[in-house]
Structures are given as structure tokens and as C-alpha cells.
Design a protein around this nucleic acid. Structure first.
Length: 247
DNA sequence: GCAATTTGACCTAG
DNA sequence: CTAGGTCAAATTGC
């Protein structure tokens, strides 16, 4: 069964690659109707979901995919995290990872089993306002254009409040179990930043006002959200399913 | 000059 | 012992 699963995953991966290429082509061609782009994004998201389903069979296969949520020893974070996946249509759209808040990168680490390192961010106002929010960003193994963003801790800084109120969004992690969606438009996303195509180093995401939340054409969209059912039967001590790394 | 990023070391948990 | 997460000094860009 794993054989079938693997084959299926491979096929789907190929599909995903094609979908992505299609996305890029359509995206590059400004004459393409919005419907076509939307369809491409949908296609990619759908295939992506299928890839995950195919690869999520044996849950134990995530060698090294053990995420801790406590972080007791120094930061004193509380259990509770929000995991989101952010898809970018191209390397120029990485700004979509910006959530309108000020994040400061404080570390990067190679993760076992993951082809890309994980970047660690914390709120810029941590010292000035004691904001405990942190987030981790890691590129998905199966899809370089897909990013896993995990929020920890609650945003208590003034900026976060302003952003969240202004965009009708809930504090990323203050709720602990809410799923977060990020959307952005290409125009807002591309702020001239570019990520290297390979040994990727997650750059800092430009802090922009809440504008990046502009709903509407979500060319860069959150591709599939999973993780925690809000208020579900999940215990306080949550664990992440590393659905991506076990293929 | 200031603020943010980079990078290696250190610490803790499993 | 290994891996993940954080800190802090050095570096770089604005």
C-alpha cells in the first residue's frame, strides 16, 4: 500500500509541478482573464491537497518531524499554536507571507528531514511591549511555493491590535486554536524582494500596513488549511502533523 | 547611527 | 546523543 501511495504521491507531485508552471505562465501573461488565474490557483490547491492526502497515510513516517510547542525553558511560551500554509504564485509573491505585523528574525535552523531550513521570527516589539508572539516559517518539501507558517504566542503589541482590528482578523495566536488565513494580492506582495531559488534562506518579510490583507483576488492563497479544528477535542498540548515530510 | 539580519553557540527536551 | 529552539555578537543595509 505504501507503494501505491508513493506512486500516487509522485504522480500528484508531477501534477502539482505542472499546475505551478501553468500558474506562472498565466500569471506572466497579463492578458489572461482573472478566471483563468483563479482556476489555476484552485487547481494547484486541489492537487496540493491530494498530495497531502496521498502522503498522509502512515502518520508515523515523519522521521524527525517532532515539533515542540512548550518552549518552556526560556521563552516561557504557552501551549497553543496556529498553523497556516501560505502559497505564493511566484518568488515575487513572497510578500504574501507578510501578515501585516512586524516580525524580527532571530534564528534559522536546518530541520531534519526537511530540505529547507526553518526560520524563526518574533515580534519586533517584544522588548518594548513585551509581545510574546513568535512564528516559524518553513518551505514545504513537496512544493517550494508553499510555506508553512506556525504562530506561537499571543500578539499583545499595539501594532497587532491595530492590524487585527483594521482587517477584521483575529489575533493569530491569542486564540490558540483558530485557523488563520492569509491572503494578499500580487501588487501588495511584490515589494521588490526576491528569494534565492535554492539554498533558500527565508528573508524577513517586509512589514507593511494591513494592506496586505486586501481580500478579493487571492491569487496567492492559503492552500489548504488543516491542523486544528477550532475548539475541537484537541488537548491543550497540541502537536503538529508533519504531513509534508513523509513522502 | 540605528535597526534588522546573519550565523554560530548554547540550552533543553525527548 | 540528537534535534529543535533561542540567544547574542558581528555584520550589513537604510
Amino acid at each position: 500500500m505504501e507503494d501505491t501511495t508513493a506512486t500516487l504521491a509522485t504522480e500528484l507531485d508531477g501534477l502539482l509541478a505542472m499546475a505551478r508552471e501553468l500558474e506562472e505562465r498565466v500569471g506572466g501573461d497579463q492578458g489572461a482573464p482573472g478566471a483563468a488565474r483563479e482556476l489555476c490557483a484552485e487547481l494547484a490547491a486541489s492537487v496540493d491537497r491530494a498530495v497531502r492526502l496521498a502522503g498522509s497515510g502512515p502518520r508515523g513516517g515523519n522521521a524527525g518531524g517532532r515539533a515542540r510547542v512548550n518552549g518552556q525553558h526560556r521563552g516561557g511560551r504557552k501551549a497553543g499554536a496556529v498553523r497556516a500554509q501560505v502559497r505564493v504564485a511566484s518568488m515575487q509573491d513572497l510578500g504574501s507571507l507578510d501578515d501585516g505585523l512586524s516580525w524580527r528574525k532571530y534564528g534559522q535552523k536546518d530541520i531534519l528531514g526537511a530540505p529547507y531550513p526553518r526560520a524563526y521570527f518574533r515580534c519586533t516589539h517584544r522588548h518594548s511591549q513585551g509581545c510574546q508572539a513568535t512564528k516559524q516559517v518553513q518551505r514545504a518539501a513537496a512544493d517550494p511555493l508553499l510555506f508553512d507558517v506556525v504562530y506561537h504566542g499571543a500578539h499583545t503589541c499595539a501594532q497587532a491590535t491595530a492590524v487585527l482590528v483594521g482587517t477584521d482578523q483575529q489575533p493569530p495566536a491569542s486564540l490558540g486554536q483558530e485557523q488563520q488565513q492569509q491572503q494578499s494580492s500580487p501588487a501588495e506582495a511584490s515589494e521588490g524582494m526576491q528569494w534565492p531559488a535554492e539554498p533558500f534562506t527565508p528573508p524577513s518579510f517586509p512589514s507593511s500596513p494591513a494592506g496586505c490583507y486586501t481580500p478579493g483576488n487571492s491569487w496567492c492563497q492559503l492552500a489548504g488549511n488543516y491542523g486544528y479544528a477550532a475548539g475541537g477535542g484537541l488537548g491543550a498540548d497540541m502537536d503538529f502533523d508533519e504531513l509534508f515530510w513523509n513522502m
